[in-house]
Design a protein around this nucleic acid. Structure first.
Lengths: 337, 337
DNA sequence: TTGAAAGCGTTACCAC
DNA sequence: GTGGTAACGCTTTCAA
């Protein structure tokens, strides 16, 4: 019942504490017979090493922190699954912190990250428009950090992302291919790495096809859903786009709502495609065409890299690791007729 | 850059280590002037106490573990938000572990939960049909555990849930009130606490209205989506229910898919209501009527109780804490005409 | 009000 | 191959 410590375990075995300790970390110094004996007794007495003591001694906690802006977002949920899986495989624990898209929160969180509690951090940025000094500070503390999705665009750090520019480009080309020429673009915080890249893909696709980008068709929404809904609705009414490319899932859903409320038929009157990892996108009526990110792979890769950094193992040659996103075409962007 | 320890901090202040330590835990023994001096210097030198050392000494880690069956499930996502919020308010950290609805996983996870790494556990059960000895063991280790949603039905432990029976009853009565009399019920693992309670609510509502429960209308699905889809589809074709009450969100979505594939009009030919915290339920076509649980409140309450247990603070009088779920009526259960 | 010192349970160096 | 022992950085009792 009361947790037993290594000293008591050693006494029961008539061995020294150091031998037992080595047996556990299967040091080559230890006779395999004694090792078995130690392990057997440990099981019998239900011995579990105290992580705080080990951590104090080794300066390693086998714990990672994940700081993400949101969790009611399928991308982050799936990324988290990838993170948790890889972490567990490698014997790491995962602390979760939510910044709620709020820069202040993120600053507080990174500052409270004590060296010692965690060995490394996986971070997706809350707000790219603010001073990112806290991230530099984190790095300066000597804590390894791997950024994913919404990254800190700093050559010094590993950044695991989707091919956002290319995917934005492909989504826009897809719409152009369907004959659309007034293609609206929805984004949120334009300062986010992913927002600027996706938008640039949109702009480049328009340019390639000789379509002049129209500022009136480009909307940067806030984090407030009601406000965003109104803005989107106004855009639809006033500018009468024939298609919408949304860089964010939430905005696409608001756009669906607005189209419904305005009795705009999708895809007849307006086509919609959006970055989204929503699994039930096909269940929406009409089913939503999406740009789907390799979310769990991104989470998994970021975690592998972080752990490699912690354990001083070989690392990818490039600090920029990119995963292809894929176009999932559904009813919302099918050619009429 | 290198983390400074309490001893160096004390030296810089010409104070003893113990004084500094006490100043931090604002002990009444310390002069408030010295306390200020200590805090100021700590800020200046960027001192952060080493959590492993503190933890080793106090046998407290200020860390909670959350073990949940899934995270691609809006209920758990929202519960997690409640958990994270309360934990952070009270200065606790949250470790997340996913059991993926798998009993073996859960056993391994609970066994690996070393006393010392965590001060307490929040747990929602993976599979109620299996031997729950590992949960008894967890309790025997002296680690406080609070169960939520899918609970361990054991008087000894705190259990935070929805009023599942009553909500199952209300959902069924709602369908009966619309004139339905062949009401199918979808559930998954029947051994889960919530599954049996919701189903019992269904049965009791039928009984109250003098409807004989029909075993052919009750389906217990597996965790395999394809298999579940086929079973649901077969049920719809063969039994021709005029309504479906689903105890689980995933099954309702599969049922939507099946209705669509069978060209069964919702709600004209068949009405559907389901337990679900899906925020975009209104965006489905037709919008889905749901039994919505107070997910984040449940997570928050479970966390508060767990922390109260850890800190030996006053606890709720009853070990059973229940939150009302609410019926959200949408198009999928509207009377025809 | 402040300080000295004994642990907390490990690991890792060094001796045997 | 095994054992003794000094840290790791903090909290807390006890003494001053």
């Amino acid at each position: 019942m009361d947790p037993i410590n290594i000293r008591q375990l050693a006494e029961r075995l008539n061995l020294s504490v150091s031998t037992v300790s080595k047996a556990f970390r299967n040091s080559s110094e230890i006779n395999s017979a004694t090792r078995e004996r130690v392990l057997a007794m440990a099981r019998e007495l239900n011995y579990q090493p105290n992580p705080a003591a080990a951590s104090l001694r080794t300066q390693r906690s086998k714990t990672l922190a994940v700081i993400i802006p949101a969790i009611d977002n399928t991308f982050f949920v799936q990324a988290l699954k990838g993170i948790e899986t890889v972490a567990r495989e490698k014997g790491f624990h995962v602390l979760i912190y939510l910044s709620y898209d709020d820069h202040e929160n993120e600053v507080l969180l990174t500052q409270s990250l004590q060296r010692g509690r965690i060995d490394g951090v996986l971070l997706s940025i809350a707000d790219g428009g603010k001073d990112l000094g806290h991230l530099a500070e984190l790095g300066a503390k000597g804590i390894p950090v791997v950024y994913f999705d919404r990254v800190y665009e700093n050559e010094e750090y590993f950044q695991v992302t989707s091919d956002d520019h290319q995917s934005g480009f492909a989504a826009t080309e897809h719409l152009i291919g369907l004959g659309c020429c007034r293609i609206a673009h929805l984004t949120s915080d334009r300062t986010l790495s992913i927002a600027t890249r996706r938008r640039q893909g949109y702009l480049d696709a328009l340019k390639k096809q000789g379509i002049e980008p129209d500022a009136a068709l480009q909307l940067a929404c806030s984090n407030d859903p009601e406000q965003s809904y109104q803005a989107i609705r106004a855009l639809l009414e006033k500018e009468k786009p024939d298609a919408v490319f949304s860089s964010f899932e939430k905005l696409a859903l608001l756009c669906y709502q607005a189209c419904h409320d305005l009795s705009l038929a999708i895809p007849e009157a307006i086509k919609i495609i959006s970055f989204s990892n929503l699994e039930i996108a096909p269940l929406l009526r009409p089913s939503l065409s999406t740009v789907r990110q390799a979310a769990s792979e991104i989470g998994a890769a970021a975690t592998s890299i972080l752990i490699a950094q912690i354990e001083q193992k070989p690392l990818p040659a490039s600090r920029q690791v990119t995963f292809a996103a894929s176009l999932q075409i559904h009813a919302s962007t099918v050619a009429p007729g």
